[in-house]
């Protein structure tokens, strides 16, 4: 299990990195934390001819709060940095809660949010969380920049909206409105494994305590992270009673497309989705109170 040979470049600027990508096209892969790419290379499932290591690129490794209260996560910001940030835990508890489920500390030391999202594994927690949080992807290419919403970024298993010459330069996560509660729950075989099913829930109450907004997003539930907009919408205007939540959780099961794995049958995954959605919505409703 040794990687195939490759040319290694460690540019120091974004422009240089983008120029390399433009020059080498499909043969080149960006290397951020490497916690998904390197194992794939060790198995020789991935054999990029060129690796563009982003770890020495200046300016990609910062975690910034923008004026509008959004969090901007640079492409090489490591999970370890995010999870140790007290403000993240306070202002984006969903992110913090889900991060604790991502692999193990040794992986989070080097793993990056940007790398994970670019990898676009539908079983991974972070894409679903980005969907629930309404995050935007800042994509850079030599000729400019564009922003893509999380819901438009993930196109299929290991497939994103990134063009061949584009880099995911940053992730922008908007602030949670007041009176919002969130929860992330998953069931994995072992802690740190990819979930057999995971759900991110977000609920906002209005002044009267009724549900003003609801979002549900699942991981391991289809070819991409899966939102359940119909189920979520059914909660808006309700008092978020147990029955309201149970009905929404049941409805969400119809909105996902679990594909099954050696660990879980699709039927069991769908069952879990209902169980976890109900539990996560209940938690989020409590937290929104």
């Amino acid at each position: 299990m040794k990687p195939a040979p490759f040319d290694w470049h460690a540019p120091e600027t974004v422009d240089a990195a983008l120029a390399l990508k433009a020059a080498h096209g499909e043969a080149a892969r960006f290397l951020a934390g490497g916690q998904s790419l390197v194992p794939a290379m060790n198995f020789r499932v991935a054999q990029p001819g060129v690796l563009i290591d982003l770890n020495r690129v200046a300016g990609l490794d910062s975690l910034d709060w923008l004026a509008d209260g959004s969090l901007r996560v640079g492409a090489t910001v490591r999970y370890r940095m995010i999870e140790r940030d007290a403000a993240v835990a306070r202002r984006l508890p969903l992110l913090a809660e889900a991060l604790a489920e991502v692999a193990h500390p040794q992986i989070r030391t080097r793993g990056t949010l940007g790398g994970n999202l670019s990898h676009a594994d539908p079983a991974s927690e972070m894409p679903a969380v980005m969907l629930a949080l309404g995050a935007r992807m800042e994509l850079r290419r030599a000729s400019g920049m564009r922003e893509v919403a999380a819901r438009d970024f993930f196109l299929g298993p290991l497939t994103t909206a990134l063009a061949e010459d584009e880099m995911l330069a940053a992730i922008i996560i908007p602030p949670l409105p007041p009176d919002t509660g969130t929860a992330f729950l998953e069931v994995a075989r072992r802690r740190g494994d990819y979930a057999m099913m995971g759900v991110a829930a977000l609920l906002r109450r209005d002044g009267a305590g009724r549900c003003a907004e609801a979002r549900l997003a699942f991981c391991s539930a289809g070819p991409t992270p899966m939102a359940a907009p119909v189920a979520a919408a059914s909660l808006v205007g309700t008092a978020l009673t147990g029955a309201d939540i149970a009905a929404a959780a049941e409805a969400a099961k119809a909105e996902i497309e679990p594909m099954g794995s050696v660990q879980a049958s699709p039927a069991y995954q769908r069952h879990l989705a209902g169980v976890l959605a109900a539990r996560a919505l209940t938690l989020a409703a409590e937290r929104a109170a």
């Binding site: 198995f43 075989r189 072992r190 802690r191 494994d193 990819y194 050696v262 660990q263």
Partner: peptide, 28 residues
Amino acid sequence: FFEQLHWDEQGQLMNASLADYLLPTALD
């Protein structure tokens, strides 16, 4: 409760990695 080798009809092993063949951890 954790470890099982899964095969397909062609006799291919479906979970030949430590990510997919589950050894119990300190939490299990």
